[in-house]
Design a protein around this nucleic acid. Structure first.
Lengths: 364, 364
DNA sequence: GTTAGCACTCACGCATCAGGAGTGCTAAGT
DNA sequence: ACTTAGCACTCCTGATGCGTGAGTGCTAAC
């Protein structure tokens, strides 16, 4: 299967306009520059391009074209006597219109498969494995956004009294995701019997709803309940509104950070530091992954285009995973803009598919 | 409170022998070298030492002493015309016999306290906070070894059938730690009623035992059970032996890795990479933290003395935390050997005390 | 429109050099 | 016998200069 179509789905720029701007020859020279630079890490000079070129052109001609490309903002030269390097715009264009993604070898597919079997792995564990294999196969850093609490489907709830009016609440989603939280009980702690009642009530009435639905359900019930007074119901509603209201911290799995050290472009300490800070704060990363959930297929965010400064010089390749019915989260790879896109895109795509399949089976 | 006593508890070298080797003057010069180097990061020359010295000595005299210290292996000079830098042995000696730890200011104590309140934080959350505050207050990297599964006390178990003969098991410790695991069921899945029976049986019979005790209890029961045949008991035992046998991955919380970038001694990329790999693999870190649980009080591991190559050039300051009855885990700070020991030791000590207190309250 | 030729720029590596920090050794002082 | 002043020596550091090579832009010829 050739997945290049996937990438073409997420073109952001008005490609038509650009293709007019660039003729066949410019395109193939831009392609040579981007691919050459990705392969070597060095700025590409006109001679090098002219030599490897299929259509035989002299370095001088290539220079003229490069000059045009530079004027249009697709490439820059780091200094006067160096070759040219793609800009973010250049990468963007390459990714949107020139990129030919490679097919995965049987070996590679097998490698991913063996790590993304649902089997009797907990969801959390499965996602971690996925992050790890993404990192290994790409030699960059793998990231996985765990399913949002809000979009999970209620399966089971359990209360355990702790000391001093605190109550441990354990909540299980249909896909087997376990969350827990401690709530403070105002007033008297319910007895074991009352707790059992509350538990039963919630388990019955919330079963099969998403957390989002659970929330509105509770609000509705609370309004209704004000009329007819019921101690148990009152408790159940107060508790559950507290449980389901507060946002559970979103979980991002980041695997293979040490790979960052292998990238020559991150040899700049400041750049690395920024990236690691981003990994630690997670917030912007979550934002970005969250955004990517809006769209279908494999998506590629490049450098500064992703409006988060800490990811300057970085690209992010993501894809969503689902349980067959709805999107649950997204996963992908983060690396330098000079990333082996054609290698990584199919890896991300295939991993997302396998994770989806595994979760689909589990949620049946 | 002066906590310097704590440190003296963990002297590893035969101090007596060494003190004979070093007279008062050598000691104070070694101290000046170590502290000067910690403060400045530069090798210390004889002139600098001679100047700041209380006992007025000429640089030449200092040089003689330094020469002796070098011969004994406490200091080295990176090259001919540089000053001297402490060796690991030098740091070790300094830490064991010369270190005067600073008292925490009210401000600092308050800062730690505000992040280590038990309150209605889950244990996991509390430990994460502790890691974060360790990192912030020390400007190095904070690490926390979560309580071992084996040493937790059984509180509650719960079974939830998933699809295809898989069973989600949720297990809660008395301290409110929640673990979950998926097991495969051979043969027919028990009915809801049977599961309830099994749940009740286990909850009653295992309550209050540590996991270690649970394990041996199960083994005993299994032997006994072979005689009298009971379907429910059989199931309960098979399940729980599966649940409690496998090792749950130990959990290490690592906070503030980005601080590594601030340490000039880690500007060496290779060194940094090694450290980050260690953070990612976690295994050796767990080993080390685990070892530190054997001993009491604040412990300091220095560089290569800790037999793990990836921590060469690093020091680790740890202390245990407990729930008042038994040690649960350990926490601390990892940074360069050139660490501000006198600053960090009291932070680690105080944090460990506060975490212990918080867990003590919770486990009541 | 393409290409050959040429002058120009600039990073990079290398050697050189002065300055300075620090040492070890020796000999003189207490 | 210990301490110290003096001195020669080492070697890192930063600045400077130079040659080289890669690459460019421009112009003129094809």
């Amino acid at each position: 299967m050739n997945v290049s179509r996937l990438v073409r789905l997420v073109v952001f720029l008005p490609v038509g306009a650009l293709v007019v701007e660039l003729n066949e020859r410019s395109l193939s020279i831009l392609e040579a520059i981007v691919e050459g630079h990705i392969a070597s890490g060095e700025p590409m000079g006109s001679r090098t391009i002219a030599k490897q070129q299929k259509l035989p052109l002299s370095p001088a001609t290539v220079r003229n074209v490069m000059s045009d490309l530079e004027e249009m903002g697709y490439i820059v030269s780091p200094h006067t006597s160096a070759g040219r390097v793609p800009t973010d715009k250049g990468y963007r264009f390459y990714v949107d219109t020139l990129l030919q993604v490679r097919n995965l070898s049987a070996q590679e597919r097998h490698n991913i498969e063996s790590h993304c079997q649902g089997g009797n792995l907990r969801t959390q564990e499965l996602l971690k494995q996925a992050g790890r294999i993404l990192s290994n196969m790409s030699s960059y850093t793998g990231i996985v956004l765990a399913p949002r609490f809000t979009s999970t489907v209620f399966r089971h709830i359990e209360f355990l009294p702790l000391s001093q009016g605190r109550l441990l609440v354990i909540f299980v989603s249909r896909s087997g995701l376990v969350q827990n939280k401690i709530i403070e009980v105002d007033g008297a702690m319910p007895t074991a019997g009352e707790l059992e009642q509350i538990t039963n009530y919630l388990n019955n009435s919330l079963n099969g709803l998403t957390i989002q639905e659970v929330r509105s359900h509770i609000v509705d019930q609370m309004l209704e309940e004000q009329a007819l007074y019921d101690q148990m119901l009152s408790h159940a509603l107060t508790f559950s509104s507290e449980i389901f209201s507060a946002d559970v911290e979103d979980d991002v799995i980041i695997e293979g950070v040490a790979n960052v050290f292998n990238q020559p472009e991150f040899s700049n300490i400041d750049c690395m530091k920024r990236l690691f800070k981003a990994f630690e704060r997670k917030h912007d990363l979550i934002d970005l992954l969250d955004k990517s959930q809006q769209a279908e297929g494999v998506q590629i965010y490049i450098g500064s285009q992703s409006e988060y400064q800490e990811f300057e010089g970085c690209s992010l390749i993501t894809a969503n995973y689902s349980n067959g019915k709805q999107t649950l989260g997204s996963l992908g790879v983060i690396g330098p803009s000079r990333m082996a896109y054609s290698q990584v895109v199919p890896v991300v795509d295939y991993t997302a598919r396998l994770v989806s399949r595994a979760l689909e089976i589990e949620s049946e």
